[in-house]
Nucleic acid binder design. Structure first.
Length: 865
RNA sequence: GCCCGGGUGGCGAAAUUGGUAGACGCAUCGGACUUAAAAUCCGAAGCCGCAAGGCGUGCCGGUUCGAUUCCGGCCCCGGGCACCA
């Protein structure tokens, strides 16, 4: 056995051992409970980043822990391989996205392997391969047949110079990222998936997911946004025809306070009103400029313009003018809203800006109403009753909504309606590097689905995008085809699918990645649902909601039996690092990588400044942020692995912060992890030099205390593992090491060696999921067994934990003033007497009458005077 | 703007149901070993104070014998907002 810890050699050997044994090959079998540990698969961006290392280390800890607990474990890995960055790289380097992607996968796979993850690589998949994405196409066609997929227009960001659709990410301050041209909203046709048909189930089923974080469920529930309201119409006449302008409101009780109606710029009424009204047409065009992002729409200045068209109030018959408002969303509800300035904050400010009438119709008891300034309580539907509302006066919210909905219904002008904020999922992308949508456009037959026998529609892998439009449009070998119905020349659809489609079902495919004749098979029913899903909090809504929807759609097509794909969810926090920069008086900010910056500290360790190592001159701190290229604050895991090895990187990641919290990078703390593992190795080496000894029936007090410490820490560590608080599990292994080093120094007799050997076997097993290589080697070197993977998980020995005395804290008026040791079975009277007898306590009681004594069993005594 | 999190020593953090605030570690300081340095080992330490003691979990207030934990209000930071993944 080597005296010195050499991670590079140990890690290479351990990984070779696992490879030779095919140790992580998962086989469906009935004799053990199964455990499917799933991590969000990476986008092959080039090399692993710290977020990946963190994500997959968490998954690996859970995988290895459950394996030792006796589960049949599957941990697969794959590649979310389609996407925009490959096209950007292609534009920058002239390399086809396919080559760039496959090269990245090869490099990142090697990195993952060197981290020693217990992955079953035989199930690896990449979404850009035809044997994967053919099933995207196949299922899309099934959805089309079922009416879940359908075609309509969608609003996109349009770059007028490049003549191309831009992703939100490519829109910067309302301008195209490459051209700088002002982006326009443009309507184009596209395919949608009817996720709204599942809105209610997606909402209700959140209650069946106790293993999901409450915050994620809250975000999803808000996203689905179920609201109860009234859909009703304002009748009007235009061009001699009777029409109705429909709106939706959750505040029908305020209908008597309507003073105008606002429609979206894209609303047909706005289009009609703009005919012969150049000013309005100009305003509508202005509304259509800018990005389609909700955050932009919500923060922009609220603007409007009257249309000159008047509609009739459905209950009073009063004339109400229609305005075009840039804040009204065509995609939500009816694309038109009733405006009640007195009881809606946005309407209030809009009305004041344009001098529109504000009519109070809700009376909040004890609150006066003024049209001068908005107050939060004006919109409170819980506290008020109707006023200035004729027959509805005095009714509360619920009663007023009932009465008004009934009156509207009687006139045939409205009814109660449940509305969801959730919109159908637009899956068409005008981009090359994605899964082709299997549709053929025929002049005679229209949009014709590609027959199943012709799947997959294979994406050519040799295109190099140049930023202007979709390169597939310039590929006649792809576009030109025969209509499957009539055989005449036809054009193939060149839109590809949103990459969220690819990631919506990959977790199913891992169960049967080798099946070339079906999307899924019965093995899916063995492994799914995933017992644990791990990924970044940034996926809390879109990816997780789409996956849940896709799973339910597949269930309804009879392909899977499960209702929900992910039983337990762990959302890991992001990895952050400090940002350093210099801002010259003139010119651009330069960012410096934290690795090139030295911190200066005073003699108490307090930080006083930061200087660039290269020139010794100060740099400014820009706070903490996610690791990014633009802020130059990334840390490359490869460098970490090369200088320290996988175990140290893994231990650092687990120890530094609990999994769900953000993790702030610190080079110094990596050094601490390294020191710890060197000490573990050294303890193993020293123990190996000593004879093996049996545990005696009775131990001397110091050894009994050390053994008690080991088992108490183990008990806590097991509890922490159960709740996925891995940072304190790592702490627990450090506490064990501290105790065992004490034993090692305490003597070299048989009793000490027995405690040492038992303690080390516990320490190695608890540590092994976090740092599998060093523990694998020590386990063998110390002769505990062939393979620590097959060792049983340690459980605390109840007898080792028994103690005859307990320590109680004594407080006077809630402040700690001392502590006492009493027999474990001491009664309350004895404890109280012992507490009052304490000298320190007497000082603070100082003859004052004792009002009350609170005794918390096993913890403390509080004397109130 | 809307939705969801977070804020505890110089730093990362811990505190299982309201019960010893700061476990474990990093950095710092002192000591041992060494020709010296690194490594290693031993020890100190929340802040103020010579001490007695006081003050301390973003800020203000409340409930309680007792609040990091519960309640009300506020400030700051991070994530998501549907074409980044």
């Amino acid at each position: 056995m080597q005296q010195k810890y050499n991670p590079q050699v140990i890690e290479r050997d351990a990984q070779q051992f696992w490879d030779d044994a095919q140790a992580f090959r998962a086989v469906e079998s009935g004799d053990k409970p199964k455990y499917y540990c799933l991590s969000m698969f990476p986008y092959p961006s080039g090399k692993l980043h710290m977020g990946h290392v963190r994500n997959y280390t968490i998954g690996d800890v859970l995988t290895r822990y459950h394996r030792m607990k006796g589960y049949n474990v599957l941990q697969p890995m794959g590649w979310d391989a389609f996407g925009l960055p490959a096209e950007n790289a292609a534009m920058a380097n002239g390399v086809p996205p396919a080559k760039w992607t496959y090269d990245n996968i090869a490099y990142m796979r090697k990195q993952l392997k060197s981290l020693g993850f217990a992955i079953d690589w035989s199930r690896e998949l990449a979404t850009c391969k035809p044997d994967y994405y053919r099933w995207n196409q196949w299922l899309f066609l099934r959805m089309l047949e079922k009416g879940i997929a359908y075609k309509r227009t969608q609003v996109v960001n349009w770059d007028p110079i490049d003549q191309t659709v831009l992703a939100n990410e490519q829109v910067i301050d309302g301008k195209g990222w490459r051209t700088g041209a002002t982006v326009e909203k443009r309507e184009i046709p596209g395919y949608y998936l009817a996720i709204t048909k599942y809105a209610d189930e997606l909402l209700e089923a959140l209650d069946t997911l106790p293993g999901w974080p409450e915050r994620v469920k809250a975000m999803q529930a808000n996203w689905i946004g179920k609201s109860y309201g009234v859909r009703f119409a304002f009748p009007y006449t235009i061009d001699g025809k009777a029409e109705k302008l429909w709106v939706f409101t959750t505040r029908a009780d305020t209908i008597m306070g309507v003073t105008f109606v606002a429609v979206a710029a894209e609303h047909p009424l706005a289009t009609r009103a703009a005919q012969g009204n150049a000013k309005l047409a100009g305003f509508i065009a202005e509304c259509k400029r800018g990005s389609v992002m909700e955050a932009d729409l919500a923060t922009m200045e609220k603007k409007g313009m009257p249309t000159g068209i008047f509609v009739e109030h459905p209950l009073t018959g009063e004339k109400v003018e229609v305005w075009v408002g840039n804040y009204v969303l065509m995609g939500y509800g009816e694309g038109a809203v009733m405006a009640v300035p007195a009881h809606d904050e946005r309407d209030f400010h809009f009305a004041r800006q344009y001098g529109l009438r504000i009519t109070q119709v809700i009376d909040i008891p004890g609150q006066s109403f003024s049209t001068d300034a908005w107050q939060e309580c004006y919109a409170d539907k819980e506290k008020g009753v109707c006023t200035h509302s004729g027959k509805y006066d005095g009714l509360n919210y619920a009663a007023a909504v009932d009465a008004i909905a009934a009156d509207l219904a009687a006139k045939g002008l409205g009814e109660k309606q449940v509305l969801y904020r959730l919109r159908d999922w637009g899956v068409s992308r005008q981009r090359y590097w994605g899964c082709p949508i299997p549709i053929i456009h025929c002049a005679d037959c229209g949009d014709v689905p590609v027959p199943d026998k012709d799947l997959p529609v294979v994406l050519p892998e040799d295109c190099v995008p140049d930023g202007s439009g979709n390169p597939l449009n310039k590929r006649p070998d792809f576009v030109d085809c025969a209509c499957p119905k009539c055989g005449k020349p036809a054009k193939r659809e060149t839109d590809t699918m949103d990459t969220f489609v690819d990631s919506s079902w990959y977790y199913l495919r891992y169960a049967c990645a080798d099946n070339s004749t079906a999307m899924v098979d019965s093995r899916v029913n063995y492994w799914l649902p995933a017992d644990q899903y791990i990924g970044g909090i940034e996926h809390a809504i879109l990816h997780l909601l789409y996956s849940r929807f896709w799973n339910k759609a597949m269930r309804d097509l009879g392909l899977v039996k499960i209702d929900e794909p992910f039983k337990n969810l762990l959302t890991q926090g992001m990895v952050l690092n400090e940002i350093f920069f210099r801002k010259p008086a003139a010119g651009r900010i330069t960012y410096y990588n934290p690795a090139d910056v030295d911190l200066t500290v005073d003699d108490k360790g307090n930080r006083v400044g930061a200087v660039l190592r290269a020139d010794g001159q100060p740099v400014e701190s820009g706070g903490i942020g996610t690791m990014s290229k633009s802020k130059n604050n990334g840390v490359d895991p490869q460098a970490l692995m090369e200088s320290y090895g996988a175990d140290i990187a893994r231990f650092y990641m687990m120890f530094t912060a609990p999994p769900e919290q953000t993790l702030e990078w610190s080079d110094a703390s990596v050094e601490g992890a390294s020191r710890f593992l060197r000490r573990v190795w050294s303890l193993g080496y020293e123990t190996a030099q000593r004879p093996v000894a049996d545990m005696p029936a009775a131990l001397p007090a110091p050894l009994a205390a050390a053994r008690r410490e080991i088992h108490a820490v183990l008990k806590q560590g097991n509890y922490d593992l159960g709740r996925h608080q891995f940072n304190t599990v790592a702490s627990a292994t450090m506490k064990m090491l501290n105790a065992l080093e004490g034993v090692l120094k305490g003597g070299n007799d048989a009793a000490a060696n027995a405690v040492l050997r038992e303690g080390l076997s516990i320490l190695l097993r608890v540590l092994s999921p976090i740092t599998p290589h060093i523990t694998h080697q020590l386990w063998r070197d110390l002769g505990y067994g062939e393979d620590i993977l097959n060792a049983p998980w340690p459980e605390p020995d109840a007898q080792a934990l028994v103690e005859s005395e307990m320590e109680l804290v004594i407080q006077v008026n809630g402040k700690k003033r001392g502590d006492i040791r009493v027999p474990r079975d001491a009664n309350k009277a004895a404890i109280e007497a012992a507490a009052l007898a304490d000298a320190e306590v007497q000082k603070f009681v100082a003859g004052q009458p004792v009002k009350k004594v609170v005794i918390v069993p096993g913890r403390l005594v509080n004397i109130v005077v």
